[in-house]
Design a protein around this nucleic acid. Structure first.
Lengths: 303, 303
DNA sequence: TCAATAGTGTCTGTCAGACACTATCGA
DNA sequence: TCGATAGTGTCTGACAGACACTATTGA
């Protein structure tokens, strides 16, 4: 900034200081990225008339090494000193899905002690949304044994208790991950407790049960779903899960799967009207009235 | 999980593996926390009738060491291997404000290369909200030379451009930090660019100018304000900035300072009606009609 | 014909923006 | 009295929930 070299209390210039700086004065934690890669798939439907049901899928990797050997974990890996966290996330994402250009968003950084039995690990979680028609890699093709798991998210219990200086509310959330082909079902229960003590509001997450899911990854899944549900309500994030063209019913079903509740068609169409543009195309051979195909209206920004 | 010891491809049990695990196989980045500590203060008012204006204040620390010697930075420090990130944040917070029990929230983790000239540093930013009446430490009392700076946030320019496969929108945001006593004014301009390319939406932040503010801390400030503005609209987060009792006009002014726009009193009162409870107290000697004091209604939860 | 989905019209209640209005204090 | 803030009443328009209704297809 200044032309005069500024010196510190030891009389060192910035240049001298940086040269003498020793990054290994004390032990550093390891930093990893963990990817929550979501997609939406169709479920097979017996009745020729009925539309296929949608399901939310999460990509998991079977661990071939200790710890949690044989369990399923989120794809991820260590962040090296010469790449940004986001680069590390993109690298992980690409190595799992072969897609380079994709929606990705940082979620939360998990830094409790004892998260990883190997050593002190801080994990930065990212969420990515993939349209299944863009997916080149199918489940199981990867050397690591990667697979898509259908995700079910359910609130088991809600609780509220009045306290002296406020109150405490808690929720039990069940996460079930299922892969039909491999006949694997993983599950976990996360408890979220929110305490209000006078002015101070605190939120804690705790794993009550985790079966088949490595590390504290259930918590990350729960957090991601919460974020996804929120964002879906006030952004166009959902289009990252849709193919190039889609019907409004399809889009509505994706909303419903994510939000975990049914929507009314009339209100839904009104709401998303100016986020999409109609095309001249229609669905065919559906066993019922054909439906117009829409395209995402790209000329929108959220900022 | 199982009673049989599971062995990996090298025939090692988990116990053996963990014993042999070397955390120093490669170089790790350093991890720090950076605290964005906000409070709201009254500005002196000449006219005896007029209410004091509110201002949003941010706590900064004058750097006594290289790099950025003499500039102002967010309070923060390295996360040690035997404390959680949140503990490190609380430790930092306590050492700056002397308050242990306070609202705190993780914001974002900044991990680009070259953020810190010393070495590779990953910084996890936290936001804390303090009610000024709870503050025991006044500006400048701290050995580090800490001071509150009045924050002004302004959108300088908004831009939208149509592109082949989508569009690009950008915003220039000016951050001004001012401390009257020290007669210091720091400033910075952050550019936020959002590109929509087909399905893919990307957001980048870039520092166009930064004067007197160390590292990439302007970006963190901009991000925090954005988050604060959002959260204020859909949570009760704002009460963390309020004293035990307050008038609705005061509360409204705090909302206005954060949102950067005026609100209509009637609509405002309707909106926050069930977040507060009235007391029997009134303001006195105000030069105008006394106003009822309210208290935050603690028996509410957001989850 | 009928089961299923596609798509529209409209009533209703809620709520925010707007603004006029009344109330109360102290110099 | 008047300048300032405190606080209320009510009109209006936007919009979401609810639901009835019409349209279209293929076996």
């Amino acid at each position: 900034m200044s032309n005069q070299p500024i010196t510190d209390r030891n009389g060192m210039t910035e240049e001298q200081f940086l040269e003498a700086y020793d990054t290994n004065m004390y032990e550093h934690p390891s930093v990893t990225v963990d990817m929550l890669i979501f997609t939406v798939m169709d479920r097979e439907q017996g009745n020729y008339r009925k539309l296929p049901e949608k399901s939310l899928q999460l990509l998991l990797i079977k661990r071939g090494e200790h710890p949690y050997l044989g369990q399923w974990a989120l794809p991820g890996g260590f962040v090296s000193v010469d790449e940004s966290i986001e680069d590390a996330a993109r690298r992980e994402l690409f190595s799992e899905t072969n897609i380079a250009n994709i929606y990705m968003e940082q979620l939360y950084t998990w830094g409790d002690l004892g998260r990883d039995p190997r050593t002190r690990v801080i994990s930065c979680s990212y969420m990515a949304l993939v349209d299944r028609t863009h997916l080149h890699v199918q489940a199981g093709e990867d050397a690591d044994d990667a697979a898509w798991f259908e995700l079910t998210y359910e609130v088991l219990e809600e609780n509220r208790e009045e306290r002296a200086q406020g109150c405490e509310a808690s929720r039990l959330i069940s996460i079930i991950l299922h892969n039909e082909i491999k006949n694997e079902t993983l599950s976990g229960i996360v408890r979220i407790v929110e305490t209000v003590q006078g002015h101070v509001r605190k939120l804690t997450r705790e794993i009550l049960q985790s079966s088949g899911i490595a590390f504290d990854h259930v918590t990350m899944v729960q957090y991601a779903i919460e974020r996804l549900r929120n964002k879906v309500e006030y952004t166009d994030i959902i289009i990252n899960l849709m193919p190039e063209t889609f019907t409004l019913s399809e889009l509505q079903r994706v909303y419903e799967i994510i939000l975990g509740k049914d929507l009314l068609a009339a209100a839904f169409r009104r709401k998303i009207a100016d986020a999409v543009t109609e095309t001249d195309e229609y669905t065919k051979d559906a066993g019922h009235r054909p439906s117009k195909l829409y395209r995402y209206n790209m000329n929108r920004n959220s900022i």
